[in-house]
């Protein structure tokens, strides 16, 4: 077995990995409510927000992923969204806007201080970023999807590098050493995701017609 076949097999596994392997929306919804409730209670908020790592790399991703997984609009809403946003541009603006908003050190700090901003975070992150991402995914063509993934990756990389380089303490609630640790972790995430993405796009099988070994794979979207 040569290396090419190995690569192909591995990325075929990636390729066949479908959304239905995710937990069901109802489970995700229950989990999301649970995470939000924990995030509101003083002890839970304390735990999530005590360090920058748990705040940025545990709580926010949890909210985003759960928000995305539990997104299951009713047919009515779906057709409404499709009607007002046929190309996905509004979804794109919404998604990037909230991403930018929560990447500002200012808002991360305020979320640890002001209860109203904390609540805004617990609601807007799953909806504005998580659900919006699915909406965007549903609405946009392949090129826009790739642009979104590309830009998201680039932002993670930029943010990680900035956190490492900045001699200033960007978040008043967190020590600079912790900021640098989060920066390093973000760069690790960026490195791993870039490897996976390169691997997938170079070796994945995308022509459903010609490759009979791929008969099993279903189309998504």
């Amino acid at each position: 077995m040569d290396i090419l076949t190995l690569c192909n097999m591995a990325s075929r596994r990636l390729n066949n990995w479908q959304l239905n392997e995710l937990p069901a929306p109802s489970t995700a919804r229950a989990l999301l409510v649970f995470v939000i409730m924990v995030g509101i209670t003083p002890a839970g908020a304390m735990w999530f927000e005590s360090s920058m790592t748990t705040h940025m790399l545990v709580q926010l991703p949890l909210l985003i992923v759960l928000g995305a997984v539990c997104y299951q609009p009713k047919a009515q809403l779906n057709s409404f969204l499709t009607r007002i946003d046929p190309l996905g541009a509004i979804a794109f603006i919404c998604y990037t806007g909230w991403m930018l908003f929560w990447m500002l050190p200012l808002n991360l700090d305020l979320a640890t201080i002001e209860p109203s901003v904390r609540l805004l975070k617990l609601i807007s992150v799953p909806i504005g970023i998580g659900c919006c991402f699915r909406w965007l995914w549903h609405q946009s063509n392949a090129v826009l999807k790739c642009v979104v993934v590309f830009e998201t990756w680039a932002s993670v990389t930029r943010l990680g590098w900035l956190y490492i380089e900045s001699p200033l303490q960007l978040c008043s609630s967190y020590l600079i050493g912790e900021q640098q640790r989060v920066g390093t972790l973000l760069l690790v995430i960026s490195g791993i995701s870039a490897t996976v993405a390169v691997f997938y796009s170079l070796f994945g099988s995308f022509n459903k017609k010609n490759d009979s070994t791929l008969a099993k794979s279903t189309s998504n979207g």
């Binding site: 603006i93 806007g97 500002l104 050190p105 200012l106 700090d109 305020l110 008043s172 609630s173």
Partner: peptide
């Protein structure tokens, strides 16, 4: 979106809490 961000950052002048 831009208006919201501008409002939050005092017209793109404050990005950090301090």
């Amino acid at each position: 979106a831009l208006g919201l961000l501008a409002w939050r950052t005092s017209n793109f002048s404050s990005f950090t809490y301090e």
